[in-house]
């Protein structure tokens, strides 16, 4: 399974919606994922890809990990996979 498919699956499960309802330009907010849901999604991503994600819930925009859309999360995960391989 490629990164985009796995991230989409994780986000769909968190939002309790069908995978087909998650698109690359969806934002977590538009899918109804709140701040605790974001923290839980990041945990699931870390577990799925065996990576460590730098993320502080106090200031998500200050983290290196861009969560502004599904596409940005996929890109950030690919970057971390390459860095932490």
């Amino acid at each position: 399974m490629n990164t985009a498919a796995k991230v989409t699956e994780i986000i769909a499960e968190q939002a309790m919606i069908d995978v087909s309802d998650v698109t690359l330009d969806s934002t977590l907010e538009s899918l109804g994922i709140d701040s605790m849901g974001v923290v839980e999604s990041i945990f699931a991503i870390e577990e799925a890809f065996d990576i460590s994600v730098p993320f502080n819930a106090n200031d998500p925009s200050d983290s290196d990990f861009d969560i502004s859309s599904v596409a940005s999360i996929v890109a950030a995960v690919d970057k971390l996979k390459a860095e932490q391989a």
Binding site: V39, I42, F43, F55, N56, A57, N58
Partner: peptide, 12 residues
């Protein structure tokens, strides 16, 4: 105890 708190990602 500390590991559990790390999970919440609210510590400086």
């Amino acid at each position: 105890g500390f590991k559990a708190w790390e999970g919440l990602r609210v510590m400086s």
